[in-house]
Nucleic acid binder design. Structure first.
Lengths: 355, 355
DNA sequence: TTTTCTTGAGAAAACCTTTTCTCATATTGA
DNA sequence: TCAATATGAGAAAAGGTTTTCTCAAGAAAA
């Protein structure tokens, strides 16, 4: 007689809405009562465990859907030792680097039912500790550390934590799992492209020598362009790009016909300076940027051809890695460098040569 | 005999590290065993509840600190119906607007032991629902919705959720708690400043009419500058700023001596165009931007005087508001507009007139 | 008809913490 | 010395879910 009915009778409905309006969520007990079975049966029905009559299972499932039952993750986590949350620690709140990384992480993990705690710690070790403790209290399954510089670590010690840690775009301790963009690869891509479209006299204008990224890109540039190719170190700004062009054009000697810049801001300064001097981009000089910072690269006249570090992909990978570690799967430790890609716009010409 | 000892004996230490190495965290039961009291006593000691001998309390407290006991937030939340988490929903993953908002939220809430779930939903209603469900499963105490446009709502319905919702810098449903920057106030600040430093012929160059922000700022501009003052609507780009100046200078009539721009990118285009035409900034023309987007405003030559929307503060307020609602305190519903502030740099001159 | 096996479903424990209630002991007053 | 009170600490329940174990009933075999 009980079997087969699907809609709730009015008494049950009344009870349910009474509970709901008191701020209570629907629990597995409510569902069990309504279905006329025990909570264990409900649990097994919904999770596909245990032996049971197929129609019982189906009946419970559709009833659960009908009243919108969703298991309390806190209770579940308490039992399973898995909270289905991970923490994301960053000291780059305003930065354009970590944003795509974060987006990638969030995107990769939501498919696995994992939510991400965002912890903006600036450069404050105290704040870092507070956040880490708060996350550990909440039983995060793992932590991802990310920052604004590949060669600096966060102001907080994550070694020896009771949960796995993955470092993305920031320096991790020895033996840790770390992910960054392959700066050398990006620089090679850019330099080879300049050569491929016929540029001979290449120059690299980039940021300070103190940045590992700047150094690595410069080394890779010289490996491709030749060890005598000039590299100008400065700061990461538009103004420096401008000034560097002034310097190149004021000193004697042959002018470059291809300029690889350490970031899009420098490239923008370079393009502006070239225009002011009457050098046409890309007809006379090809310019390549780095970062593919849309709002900068796309608004420059002409729009910048630039190197994209695939940061979203990097985030996605990092997310999947903590997840793997959290589930007890092993992940090979060490530094993994993800390849970059070249985004062709108009500041180089040669777009038709792409293949 | 038991009383007064502080350091663990070796047997207890061994047991503890055995548990820890098996991936188990220290529980209140461990602590109780070590302290030689019951779990209830420990709980009461640490939470300052119940009656108990002062030295018992102290002994337990220092023991807890020594072994690093921290209560499991999942268990706590299960009991108290408070998870000390809130969800942050955003469709502006890359945007410069929501970043400071997020930072403000995180900063305000960490002090209250509350962690923030970051949910990047782009403009995907499906993804939005997945995230919201995941958060509700995790028993978030509240949700903050934020986006890239004040006059658009997120692609997900947050009405009727069993937790409080606060909207920050995005449109909420009727009767909701919503926080935005006061565009009119910002525009007034800028326009009045131009007048104050002696500019008479003011122009406003801004974004599309479809943006409520653009319209409100334009209205406020005209209230201050006079209803005949020209307003040029275009897009939010540097190129448009450039083009707008071309238009103004090519058509006959008096040239403006003060230009209020709808955002920093437009301002940058305006400044560049003026320089190209030989008009000096700020000597001949004063230019004001909007947004105080550091990387744009500070790198423009000369650095931009601009309106700051106090987005971090807005985030902080939003955070405190969900918290209040989560704790059952009432918050007056409706749209609250937070004041802006003027950031004086060099594109206006008159910096010394500040008071 | 009796025995064995299969199937379906429930009872109870476990996860960790907090809180209320209860109880034993020590202290005070008569 | 006895009763009444104050004090300190433990037992147990609760919160929501999952999992293991147990058990009853029906079906098949003898």
């Amino acid at each position: 007689m009980r079997k087969g009915f699907l809609t709730l009778n009015s008494r049950e409905e009344a009870k349910l809405s009474a509970r709901r309006s008191k701020g209570h969520r629907v629990t597995i007990h409510d569902l069990a009562r309504i279905a006329g079975v025990s909570v264990s049966t409900v649990s097994k029905a919904l999770n596909g465990n245990g032996r049971m009559a197929a129609d019982t299972r189906e009946r419970i499932k559709s009833l659960a859907a009908e009243i919108g039952f969703r298991p309390n993750a806190l209770a579940r986590g308490l039992l399973s030792n898995r909270s289905f949350t991970v923490g994301l620690l960053t000291n780059d709140t305003y930065g354009r680097f970590t944003l795509p990384v974060m987006a990638g992480i969030s995107e990769a993990l939501v498919d696995h039912g994992v939510s991400v705690f965002l912890c903006a710690i600036e450069d404050d070790p105290e704040l870092g500790k507070v956040h880490v403790d708060a996350m550990l209290d909440k039983q995060v399954d793992g932590i991802i550390a990310t920052g604004k510089r590949v060669d600096r670590s966060l102001p907080v010690d994550l070694a020896g934590l009771p949960v796995p840690v993955v470092y993305a775009f920031t320096e991790g301790e020895a033996g840790s799992v770390t992910l960054t963009a392959d700066d050398r690869h990006g620089a090679r891509l850019a330099t080879e492209w300049l050569q491929r479209i016929g540029r001979k006299r290449l120059v690299h204008i980039t940021g300070p020598r103190e940045f590992a990224s700047a150094v690595e890109r410069a080394e890779a540039f010289r490996e491709v362009a030749g060890s005598a190719a000039p590299v100008l170190h400065g700061v990461w700004s538009e103004a420096w790009g401008h000034a560097a062009v002034d310097r190149l054009w004021n000193e004697g000697g042959g002018k470059p016909d291809g300029i690889f810049c350490g970031n899009d801001q420098i490239a923008r300064g370079v393009v502006d300076a070239l225009r002011e001097r009457g050098a046409k981009v890309p007809e006379d000089v090809s310019v390549i940027g780095f970062d593919n910072w849309e709002i900068m690269a796309a608004q420059t006249r002409p729009p910048l051809t630039t190197v994209d570090m695939n940061l979203k992909e990097l985030g996605r990978e990092a997310g999947l890695m903590v997840l793997a570690l959290a589930e007890g799967r092993t992940v090979e430790p060490g530094l993994r460098k993800l390849p970059c890609k070249l985004v062709i716009r108009e500041s180089c010409g040669g777009g038709d040569r792409r293949d």
